[in-house]
């Protein structure tokens, strides 16, 4: 009596569209040691110092590539004039992301309840995910002018589908046994959703939110470069047209920091609420 047959109580595994690795949420193995921190700091010092030295040694002109010290100086002296633009970019990113992510989450929760509907609309979702929403920005500007509106719409359009497709993967991870467990105590559909499906989907939802936020940032900056006189993207085009490279790279540095901040936020949330996955 040893033949194996498929067991329907087997753990469900979501196939498809995960774009990032869940193991990113795995708790780190203890704290960093002093030696590790020293090694990290030393490497940074060598890289930045090396760049500084090389750029000065070969007398690379400022408009080609400014040395790190010039960028740092520009970051400090120009920050007061850059800060309002950072504010604008954050407004676009946060409101566009909030709108896109909420709609994406709700749609994912709904469509995964109806596998048939899901099959029909899947190609359109894929289209939304793969189309760079930046392409629509000129059209949006034509329709909504040069204010926040077209940018917020573009950010929402870029982040929403990313959140949706990942969240849907999460919600699709039906585990028949866990749902039966809830049903065996008389759980309602709503209880099953909040107490089984949602927590089971959470790790994938967080991945979706992180990717959605990064795509939102890219789209916000891109939209700012296309038109309108404000935002970090606008600073990039302005500084480069005036060949103010230290200022230009100071803005690039701020954008990198924004991206890293987004990653860190979701990483920490994931470590707190979704580390059971690993």
């Amino acid at each position: 009596m040893g033949d194996t047959t498929p067991d329907f109580a087997r753990k469900g595994s979501g196939g498809g569209a995960s774009l990032a690795n869940l193991s990113a949420f795995a708790p780190g193995r203890g704290g960093r040691t002093v030696a590790e921190i020293a090694a990290i700091a030393l490497t940074a010092l060598v890289v930045i110092g090396g760049a500084e030295l090389a750029l000065r040694l070969f007398d690379v002109p400022l408009y080609v590539m400014p040395p790190p010290s010039a960028i740092a100086a520009a970051l400090v002296t120009e920050f007061p004039s850059i800060a309002p633009h950072l504010g604008h970019t954050l407004v676009e990113l946060l409101s566009g992301f909030a709108i896109g992510a909420s709609i994406g989450l709700v749609l994912a929760a709904i469509i995964t309840q109806f596998p048939f509907t899901e099959k029909i609309i899947a190609p359109y979702i894929l289209l939304l995910v793969t189309t760079p929403m930046l392409a629509l920005v000129p059209l949006l500007i034509l329709r909504f002018g040069f204010g926040y509106t077209p940018r917020i719409i573009a950010v929402a359009l870029a982040s929403g589908p990313m959140v949706m497709i990942n969240a849907a993967t999460g919600f699709r991870r039906v585990d028949a046994a866990k749902i039966a467990l809830a049903r065996s105590y008389g759980a309602s559909t709503l209880q099953i959703f909040w107490k089984i499906r949602a927590p089971m989907a959470l790790p994938m939802i967080l991945v979706g939110l992180m990717i959605g936020a990064i795509f939102g940032l890219l789209t916000a900056v891109g939209a700012e470069m296309v038109g309108g006189g404000f935002g970090l993207g606008n600073r990039l085009t302005t500084y480069s047209s005036m060949i103010q490279m230290p200022q230009f790279f100071a803005v690039v540095l701020i954008l990198s920091m924004l991206g890293i901040a987004i990653y860190l936020i979701f990483f920490l949330i994931g470590r707190r609420w979704a580390s059971w996955e690993a």
């Binding site: 046994a177 467990l181 059971w276």
Partner: peptide
Amino acid sequence: FQEANLLPW
């Protein structure tokens, strides 16, 4: 249930 079926979260 077969295989404990605890909620891992």
